[in-house]
Design a protein around this nucleic acid. Sequence first.
DNA 1: ATAATTGCAAAGTCTTTGCAGTTTG
DNA 2: CAAACTGCAAAGACTTTGCAATTAT
Lengths: 158, 158
Amino acid sequence: MAASRPPAHHRESHSHPDVAAQIVSVLERLREHGGRITSGRRAVVVALLRHDDHHVTADDIAAVVQADQPDIHLSTVYRTLEALEQVDVVSRVDLGQGRAVYHLVDHVHHHLVCDRCGSVTEVPASVVEPLTQALDDRFSFAASPTRLTISGLCSSCR
Amino acid sequence: MAASRPPAHHRESHSHPDVAAQIVSVLERLREHGGRITSGRRAVVVALLRHDDHHVTADDIAAVVQADQPDIHLSTVYRTLEALEQVDVVSRVDLGQGRAVYHLVDHVHHHLVCDRCGSVTEVPASVVEPLTQALDDRFSFAASPTRLTISGLCSSCR
DNA sequence: ATAATTGCAAAGTCTTTGCAGTTTG
DNA sequence: CAAACTGCAAAGACTTTGCAATTAT
């Protein structure tokens, strides 16, 4: 899949001072909701919180996780990601063509997906705000605040 | 070939006065681009132009086509739709979750897809215009003028 | 003639699911 | 211990593709 790597806008991604604490709190959250903590789940959470990119596929996570623990199955990654989504820690976004990415809910943004090269560019919510407001006013449609996908051509492909 | 001219009654959905003429022109367009006209392709075009809905899946088209010609295979529908897309007659829009719909390019609009019930609401391009303008200005991103998909909750599900 | 098209079946992608065996709390 | 989780394999949903046979021009 993802034939071309999106041009990772590399700037320090997560400005979270204490990732370790975050990991603990996320796991805690799972437990609060009746979930259990396993090495597989912990590995997924670690990979997710440490990942440089804001949008990762289940496959990306699996690759990281399996580097250390080859036995963690892809389906476990999917199931863990699903559990995290239900606990509102991560949000799943469909980028089209069957591709789905996950990102932390605390990072609110939208995505511009290039039809040609497949790159994904983040857009701060503020830029889209006027539109979501208009959609609410005129269609009573509550556009997802974190899961918007806009396709088109990126600056280098247009 | 001189197809039996269908009755000129306008029970149509699109504001096209003469569907029959449109069918001919679309087929003509295929031929101009080196394509050939077969009964399967004609059936797909007819189904597409006569369809009441603005967004149809390959499956929808296949169902209509196969009612008359059971031998037309789904893959032929996909291939024809693809050919029509390359000739700029139809546009394919990915609604997420692997679902894709096709619509005539002359019907410019965007889609609001409900996360809960899956309903699709059309939005005129004018509502989205300010956003596409902003994306162009700030990110040099050329948002597709006809293929935007916005997910969220529709009026009855929110 | 001859290049485009088609039906069919098989493959592909990404994701989900049924189960039986393992763990966690 | 009971419930939750896991690996595995198999299934799904949707779309694409290789081929040999067919057909439009």
